[in-house]
Design a binder for these strands. Sequence first.
DNA 1: TTGTATGCGTTATCAA
DNA 2: TTGATAACGCATACAA
Lengths: 343, 343
Amino acid sequence: MARLAGVSQTTVSLVLGGNKQGIALHEDTRARVFAAARELGYVPDPAARRLAAARNNLLGVFSFTATFPTAVEHSYYPFLAGVEQEAAAQGYDLVLFTGSSSGGAQAGEPGALDRVRLADGCLFLGRHVRGDQLRRLVADGYPAVHIGRRDEPAGLAWVGADYVAASAEVVRHLTGLGHRRVVLVREDDDAPASTDREHGFRAALAECAGRRGADDPAAVVRTGRPAADITPAWVRARLAEGTTAFVAEETDTGGAWRALHTAVAAAGLDAPRDLSLALLGSPPADLAAVRPPTGFDIPRAELGAAAVRLLVAQLAGQERAEPLVACAFRAGDTTGPPPGGPG
Amino acid sequence: MARLAGVSQTTVSLVLGGNKQGIALHEDTRARVFAAARELGYVPDPAARRLAAARNNLLGVFSFTATFPTAVEHSYYPFLAGVEQEAAAQGYDLVLFTGSSSGGAQAGEPGALDRVRLADGCLFLGRHVRGDQLRRLVADGYPAVHIGRRDEPAGLAWVGADYVAASAEVVRHLTGLGHRRVVLVREDDDAPASTDREHGFRAALAECAGRRGADDPAAVVRTGRPAADITPAWVRARLAEGTTAFVAEETDTGGAWRALHTAVAAAGLDAPRDLSLALLGSPPADLAAVRPPTGFDIPRAELGAAAVRLLVAQLAGQERAEPLVACAFRAGDTTGPPPGGPG
DNA sequence: TTGTATGCGTTATCAA
DNA sequence: TTGATAACGCATACAA
């Protein structure tokens, strides 16, 4: 013990612990403690100090699929980048959990989510988190934050991208160019991320209809995987009906956008010459290079960081703040005025 | 406490702790303890565990730059994939220590490394490791494994890719095609990864020279960042001297390969028609699609997994095994016989 | 087969 | 300004 070296004992904690309480210390004492510590190579045991502090400075990160899947494009990497940085800034370390691993022994078992309790609080990623277990965690007052909007279980804190506002902005960009009839291609599921985009889409079109007195031009198409119904013929039919712009939502595979892109090209059409295309999100890497679509970028790193801040605030007993993070509008090369002129 | 739920208390440790000592336990008791634990969502505190037993089934990962940097190409992500999977298989949870992350509160502090002691052992990644702190950890007998060959501090265990063998194999592929004069373009630094590649390169060429009695055709060029000296004129000059093949080492930015690629194209030359090109590693994503180069792939996930196995073996007091992991030769489209025919 | 007592290294509360 | 002393939550030797 450094106690032997110096002449003190509890004092070591104080000087080496940073003296949070602001207790007065003799400068000599400090110096002696430091000297002795260096001499013996003494290092405060993090386990002991975390035990005594009743807080281990660990934040959990739980993703129901592997945190590091082989296919990078499905990964949570962009979120983790923000999580890591913000956790570092807040002085927390990260414990990585996955639905498939969780300590090896009890994979997939009913209590698998309980493992996260070894951390002070936990972040959850992904749609497929078991609701019942999460509910219990939340009910027990365990600090938890979900990345992505989530209505269930009640009381679960979350941070999410403001898809409503971002989608509305994209649509307003189109209506501002003169488009009056726009079609949204979305996935056939009811995830909040899809629903929010549709809300923003409809809201922005309704605004325009109100102003100009036109009838409601909103049209929404739900497509499957793969998006087999988005064909050149389908595109032509929509154009014939007066549609001048198409909007696709971003999905994890980019399927909707890819299908739209392909169908338009196959129909011998060109954006923005013959019609306008926009993407409610970011394009898959291989299509990004071809022609950057008009749309918005999801601030994934920002979301990760915001989630950490929210979780830390929860740990400190503070109430939650604004959970929505704004997306950045991206002006691309795929939109322009409708062919026949505005209106 | 789970103690309240059941009727025991120390027993909880035994049954939940895996009962290392092989003490006899009533099946009813075990069942009751498990039931109570599940009921309360009880999880043993890792800090307390580590304090009392000096182990808590936590493995640390410490990288000397952010583990999830904004620039994806510099990331340790591929290693992490293997680390995560193997750690799960071995029954360990992963702690990502954020001590050195950019923006981290204790980024450059002298004690930044000490927090890893919370975990039973720790993996280290990256070239820019604080040697002094690592040395202390190792000297204290703390289980540590470095991913990537490393000579310093002495006694630090590591796993690495067998760059020597892999590079030699690539060169033999070239000499087998008939190339006799080959130039290596490498970074101007002395990282083991670069040095090993050069060794393999030289060894394979020397073999060939020995067999055929030719003079030593090895030529090594060190280039900076950016690799400004790799110009079309430079390529032409080497060809004029009789060089028929060029080999570049993989770097984190892919700079050397990119420079070579660009210079050859700008010189109006084509591989494998006019000359052969090979890459000691994998190409950056954007160049991979263009034309897959002959070379080898670093088994990053395998390395991560091997590191975990080595660390776990160290925890069990076993001695270290073979630290080298073989790279996979990749036949690409950039090599062929020399233009003038073999020899 | 299970309960009791003790210690792991710190921090926090009080007393000196 | 500093030194005792009691937790912190768990594991282990030992007694029951």
